[in-house]
Computed example of a mutant assay.
Amino acid sequence: MTIHPVVEAVTERIRRRSQPTRQAYLARITRARQAGPVRMRLPCANLAHACAASGPDDKRTLTGGRAVNIAIVSAYNDMLSAHQPLETYPAILKQTAADLGAVAQFAGGVPAMCDGVTQGEAGMDLSLFSRDTIALATGVALSHNAFDGMLLLGVCDKIVPGLLIGALAFGHLPAVFVPAGPMPSGLSNAEKAKIRQLHAEGKLDNAALLEAESRAYHAPGTCTFYGTANTNQMLMELMGLHVPGTAFVNPGTPLRDALTAEAARLVVGLARDEHQAPLGEVVDERAIVNATVGLLATGGSTNHALHVPAIAAAAGMLIDWDDLATLSAVVPLLARVYPNGSADVNHFQA
């Protein structure tokens, strides 16, 4: 396979620049991986605590040997459309794990806020800070060290970067991200812009504006424009952290449920196969450059100029805006998705 020389050069300079910190990170996760599942080395009282609330079958599985135990960390809440579908996912994931002779435990929840709700309000000041709170909450959920793999459920702007940054602290484990998918297309962007303009001119009242906005943001799922939330899903797929093809499938559909179940099957299989690379090895300089190239080629959110370097740093890699700029000079834009065009993310999926 031929790689563009600039893409190859940027990848190599990131690798060289990051060698000391990357090697230290890999050494740390290698030690953790070689130690094996902590659960089976826990004192009896600790292990009893870890499965006290489990049903009889799961308790026998967790205490009886080397069965795989998967942590579920979720950003579910029922206020935000993007995260509301996640309510039903743990049951699907747990049942799928059980069918495979494994266990999935809901390890913890993380906060999730929406810039679309807080923009122009004081809550917006918390938005970027929330990413690091989410990373910390993810680390707390995983700190019980009773797990062999991770399922990370989240969608929006700071949530997915926060989940990934936190999970990379436990990069000796395999991980699969589980998205919810976008809501079906509603009021078109062109019509929405027209109504907003009429409102700004005083030709439509607030009731008419709210009715239009409610036809645009109208159902469970991610907003349909290609902002940071949907770009998150594209990047997780490009980095190899999704079930392939799962980024933009609508919630509440048989395919979405099948993809959710497949995420559990995938991570259980990864956890059982000691030859499979864990999260911290998957997220290497090639994955970071691949994500950046995909970000540029699809016209994704510029917020990832903040998130991609932070994700890389959590895995011991050092990248900067010069790397992003060098790549941007040679990566063509292949898609025109709103706000970089008229199509929405459902058109992009189609």
Rank of each mutant, 00 (worst) to 15 (best):
M1C: 11
M1F: 11
I3Y: 09
H4C: 11
S18K: 04
R22T: 10
A24R: 14
A32K: 14
Q34G: 07
A35R: 08
P37G: 03
V38I: 05
R39S: 13
R39A: 13
M40Y: 07
M40K: 09
A48Q: 14
C51M: 10
A52S: 12
A53M: 12
A53D: 15
S54F: 15
K59A: 14
T61A: 10
L62I: 15
G65Y: 07
R66D: 14
A67V: 05
N69K: 10
I70G: 09
I72G: 01
Y76V: 14
N77P: 07
D78K: 04
M79Q: 14
L80G: 12
A82M: 05
A82S: 15
L86N: 09
Y89R: 10
A97R: 03
A97D: 08
L100H: 06
A102F: 05
A104M: 06
C114D: 15
D115M: 08
A122C: 07
A122P: 08
M124S: 12
D125P: 00
F129A: 15
S130G: 02
R131S: 01
R131Q: 03
T133L: 15
I134F: 00
A135Q: 11
A135E: 12
A135V: 13
A135K: 06
L136H: 15
G139K: 01
V140K: 04
A141P: 07
A141S: 07
G149T: 06
L152I: 00
L153S: 00
L153C: 06
G154A: 05
G154P: 09
G162A: 08
A167E: 09
F170E: 04
G171S: 03
H172G: 10
P174G: 11
F177G: 00
A190T: 15
I195Y: 02
Q197P: 00
L198S: 13
H199G: 09
A200E: 07
E201P: 07
K203S: 05
A208T: 12
L209P: 09
S214Y: 04
Y217Q: 06
T222C: 10
T224F: 03
F225H: 13
Y226K: 05
G227M: 06
G227E: 07
T228D: 10
Q233N: 12
M234N: 10
E237Y: 01
G240S: 00
V243W: 01
A247K: 03
F248N: 06
V249A: 10
N250E: 15
P251V: 06
A263K: 01
L270F: 03
H275R: 13
Q276P: 03
Q276M: 05
P278K: 02
L279T: 06
G280C: 13
E281M: 08
E281A: 07
D284S: 07
D284F: 03
D284A: 06
A287V: 05
I288Y: 09
V289S: 02
N290H: 11
N290K: 13
G294R: 03
L295P: 04
L295M: 03
L295I: 00
L295A: 01
L295H: 01
A297Y: 03
T298H: 04
H304S: 13
A305M: 12
L306R: 08
V308H: 02
I311Y: 01
A313G: 14
G316W: 05
D320I: 01
W321S: 14
L327K: 01
S328C: 08
A335K: 12
R336A: 15
P339N: 06
N340Y: 02
G341T: 04
S342G: 11
S342H: 06
D344E: 10
Q349W: 04
A350W: 08
